[in-house]
Design a protein around this nucleic acid. Structure first.
Lengths: 346, 346
DNA sequence: CGGGACTGGGAGAGCGCTCTCACAGCGTGC
DNA sequence: GCACGCTGTGAGAGCGCTCTCCCAGTCCCG
């Protein structure tokens, strides 16, 4: 019974021979299914250790028709205009991955990374998942408003969890942050600092995040007695933030308080404010959203609404795993509370 | 012959029945192996389309013992002190992923994302890869100087490609950029601008990239007649760049030219320079390295040495695939030429 | 003390695929 | 006209595993 060359990894059969039992028994030990005599179990476990046995996933999933694999699917619109560095270069995406991996790894699971950026590919995704032995999907959609994928996946019975509420209603699990509450935190802060002329740079009107943060901010300001808030829409990029800031400055030169729907746009806004000679926070108080890395790079450092992205990623992974374990389980949503992180800009 | 419910995807057998041929023939068509009569082939292809057949990877790899799967493995040192957002939050990592995915996707391949951050996990990686049906590894090591993984993988006969030259020599393929050449481009630029007091913020002495960029810069400056260059070591983070800049300013208050070993540190350095009242590029010319996203966020926008990270990621993927296809193939290295991207800071 | 319930273990089929082998059909050369 | 190769196809084994079925043994109760 010498060690096998790496060309022939030990099989159940090998372990069974070493332990002097049948394949079935070894299988039962490995999968801890049914009662196995404790003494026998120990013999088997020793044999497993001795042979260095690792179950062959292919063989297992061939017979069980379950696979246990999860995929992290990034869905982009058709002919997406690549932002610099692409999706994966977006640190926000990285934080989600961080949370997902943190949850999956202790379980011995590793996500498959899939990118789909055309409707043609979206059509082929479900068979592809089957082929790739994936039985659960973590979906990050970059155009949630019109993405058909959540529906397609639930229709196909693939356990799925989304990052952010689906644009089209679908019976699918998701995690999200309470955007409106976050926007209210920002509004309250600006008002309590005594800001009188308040404006906001909103996210794209097509995204739930863009809509909710704007609505939440307007509501909260209205409750503070500010009926009107100047709005400029941005696209969540730094450059979009710069353009929006310029428009805002033209429309409302006297503004002294600003809420920006994400940190990246806030960064751009700060640049424009600086070039326009406005001091932050003395002339204009600025609050961002996300608490991303860039919030710390800003000068002054950005006061922002923290979104616990890593935790959200982990929760998303947990939800998908639970649904994989129990397909009867209903779609659930977990909404995280945002938090105001006070730094120097407001 | 109605459509099957999703519970029973079509098998080779089903296709064979529809086409009126044997399983073997369908298999030959699917894998385009040996000559099949063109007419039969077409019949089979129609049957495949009609049934919506997708090969079952598990069954296939069970018999072939090949899997065709590739993993993107990120190897961190033990008890890594998490930078904000972790590895995946690093945009540089994202760019590598971008390039890898760009190359893999057209081939219908999707990388498995694995993170290992302890020696214990490194020990278990090879069996784990076997279990996960991975037969090729794209390795990104965050502590190349002492990472045992390249050796372990090549010893186990796993086709591997590294991003960046391995710290310990090993017969393993890798991509890299000509760090010294890049540093020389920076040196030449500073000298041609007329800088007289030149300093550099280097990367960690433990990394090949840190060493090579420093060595290249010193050599080039020496060739221009500057025997001495003030050096402060940073850790490739923004904060590290700030600290290094402070030390440099103390040691060499008159400095008028600066080469920083990556953009993130350059960003930090710019912040400190601004706070110290130095104008860039008028008082101090600054050149970074990487041409990352942050280079565009800097004010002034950063002149930097471009590293074609996405292309490098793609090349890494290509190399691993080639070795998977031909195990006899020898380890190769592909070194990319850097390029100076001139913006406003120098 | 016999019969039923229960418990732990083995035998064996078969998941969907590839691949070797055998074989039919044809053309070629002596 | 026969041996020979060559090409295209089918039959069937078997990859490593799970899971159903079956059986031997033990225990409890009437």
């Amino acid at each position: 019974m010498t060690t096998h060359p790496p060309s022939a990894p030990p099989t159940l059969e090998d372990v069974a021979r070493v332990a002097g039992v049948s394949r079935a028994t070894v299988s039962r030990v490995v999968n801890s299914v049914r009662n196995v005599d404790p003494k026998l179990r120990e013999t088997v476990e020793r044999a497993i250790a001795a042979t260095g046995y690792v179950p062959n996933r292919a063989a297992r999933s061939l017979v069980t028709r379950r696979t246990g694999g999860v995929a992290l699917v990034v869905s982009e619109p058709d002919r997406h205009i690549e932002a610099f560095g692409g999706v994966f270069g977006d640190p926000f995406f990285g934080r989600v991955v961080e949370g997902v991996v943190a949850h999956l790894r202790p379980l011995g699971l590793h996500p498959l990374l899939m990118l789909v950026d055309s409707d043609e590919e979206r059509e082929k995704l479900v068979p592809k998942l089957r082929q790739e032995q994936v039985s659960g999907v973590l979906l990050i959609s970059l155009h949630p408003a019109e993405d058909p994928l959540p529906r397609m996946l639930t229709d196909a019975g693939v356990p799925t969890a989304l990052f952010a509420r689906p644009g089209r209603p679908a019976p699918v699990s998701y995690v999200d942050v309470a955007h409106q509450d976050g926007a209210r935190l920002a509004a309250d802060r600006l008002v309590s600092r005594g800001c009188r002329r308040v404006a906001t740079i909103a996210g794209p009107a097509g995204t739930p995040a863009g809509q909710d943060r704007l609505a939440g901010f307007r509501d909260a300001m209205a409750r503070h007695g500010h009926a009107y808030v100047a709005v400029a829409e941005g696209d969540f990029t730094e450059h979009g933030g710069e353009r929006a800031m310029e428009r805002l400055l033209a429309e409302e030169p006297e503004l002294d308080g600003l809420f920006v729907a994400n940190d990246l746009m806030a960064y751009g806004a700060l640049t424009v404010l600086r070039e326009a000679g406005r001091r932050v926070p003395d002339d204009v108080a600025v609050i961002g959203f996300d608490d991303s890395r860039v919030a710390l790079s800003c000068r002054p450092r950005l006061t922002t609404v923290r979104q616990p992205v890593e935790e959200m990623g982990a929760a998303m992974a947990r939800m998908v795993l639970e649904r994989m374990g129990d397909p009867e389980r209903r779609a659930e949503s977990v909404i995280f509370d945002p938090e105001l992180v006070v730094r120097d800009s407001a």
